[in-house]
């Protein structure tokens, strides 16, 4: 694993570095599954190995894959190496103060966590502890993390997006001067395969969101898989094909509406007389008792997270792949 990290940094070709970095992510995914963190492994497989590799590749597509290495600078690299080694040595010297690996009675495992494990099922009827902690006990954390994804999406828009009026003139000029040429990426096999796969990917993603209460999964993973299915559509056909179905404006509205849904569920709890994001109070409008209401509240929140993550992944990909022009790209 460490080896993969080193290789991905030492390869001169950036495309190769991106692919090796994807392999590194898959190794991390296996390690997390081994430590019992299946939800994290799932997320890493979808995000680290899938989407982030695509982001790096689409950036490289718009720029250049070759690195110009310059002679000299080895002394500088060595100096940085010494500094970093010193920092690492300091970190290692603090090692004895940390609890042992796998100690069930360490402070991390012994303070608030036993409550979550013992009471999750009575409080919320959710067997997957990760989901109940994510969306119920730690609802504020997740709301703000979703907001961070939303803000990152806006940031990328404001950095890369180029005015449409300008790009329209570019487009017409290009359309007149250059006749449509043969595109080597225009492969029948790739198109038909993705046409066949995308419905199943989306169905699986919906299952992951809806079944996150009982098995590994939830809004983040399902949202990333849904986003990845649309990104696959954009890669195998072209960006215009995707944008015909999903307008830029509706993409951004949907990104915002996911966060809005999350916040609205919280506000609904306030209007019903409870605290913010206290889903138990919603039992008068949702079916079932208080615990069932919390379970339904978690589902609503997860759907909000899924919508935001899905469309922000798509929007980030479109921006990176088309260099902000929204016309063509990877």
């Amino acid at each position: 694993m460490v080896l993969f990290a080193l290789i991905s940094l030492s390869i001169q070709n950036l495309m190769g570095a991106a692919i090796v970095f994807g392999a590194y992510s898959f190794m991390m995914c296996l390690i997390w599954a081994g430590m019992g963190a299946v939800d994290v492994a799932f997320t890493e497989a979808a995000v680290g190995a899938g989407v982030s590799t695509v982001f790096i590749v689409s950036t490289i597509y718009n720029t250049s894959a070759t690195m110009r290495s310059r002679p000299g600078g080895m002394a500088f690299k060595f100096f940085i190496g010494v500094v970093v080694t010193l920092a690492g040595a300091f970190l290692l010297s603090a090692l004895t103060d940390f609890p042992d690996w796998g100690d069930p009675n360490s402070p991390v495992n012994a303070t608030v966590v036993p409550y979550y494990i013992e009471n999750s099922i009575d409080d919320t009827h959710v067997p997957n502890l990760v989901t109940s902690v994510l969306a119920d006990y730690r609802g504020f954390d997740t709301l703000l993390e979703t907001t961070v994804v939303f803000i990152a999406c806006i940031a990328i828009y404001s950095i890369l997006r180029i005015e449409t009026a300008k790009s329209k003139t570019d487009e017409t000029e290009e359309g007149i001067t250059s006749p449509p040429s043969y595109d080597p990426s225009d492969s029948l096999i790739v198109r038909q395969a993705s046409r066949f796969m995308i419905p199943f990917m989306q169905l699986f993603a919906l299952y992951v969101i809806a079944h996150g209460h009982y098995s590994p999964g939830g809004g983040f993973q399902g949202g990333v898989i849904l986003g990845a299915s649309l990104i696959l559509l954009a890669i195998s056909f072209d960006l215009k094909f995707l944008l015909r179905h999903w307008r830029e404006k509706s993409l951004m509205l949907l990104v915002a509406s996911g966060v809005f849904l999350y916040a609205a569920v919280g506000l609904a709890c306030v209007f019903m007389g409870g605290n913010y994001l206290e889903y138990g109070i919603l039992d008068s409008i949702l079916p079932g008792d208080q615990a069932m209401a919390r379970s339904h509240g978690i589902l609503l929140v997860e759907i909000g997270v899924g919508i935001t993550v899905m469309f922000s992944m798509v929007a980030i990909h479109i921006n990176l792949a088309s260099n902000g022009r929204f016309d063509r790209g990877l």
């Binding site: 963190a37 982030s52 608030v112 993390e145 922000s312």
Partner: peptide, 29 residues
């Protein structure tokens, strides 16, 4: 049962991480 709390913190961190990686790549472009 393994600790669910650290897992959810890292789960969200991964997704936020890819979003910030996207911002970094956008700046690089």
């Amino acid at each position: 049962y393994a600790n669910p709390l650290t897992q959810i913190l890292m789960l969200t961190a991964i997704v936020v991480g890819v979003a910030t990686l996207g911002v970094g790549l956008a700046l690089a472009q």
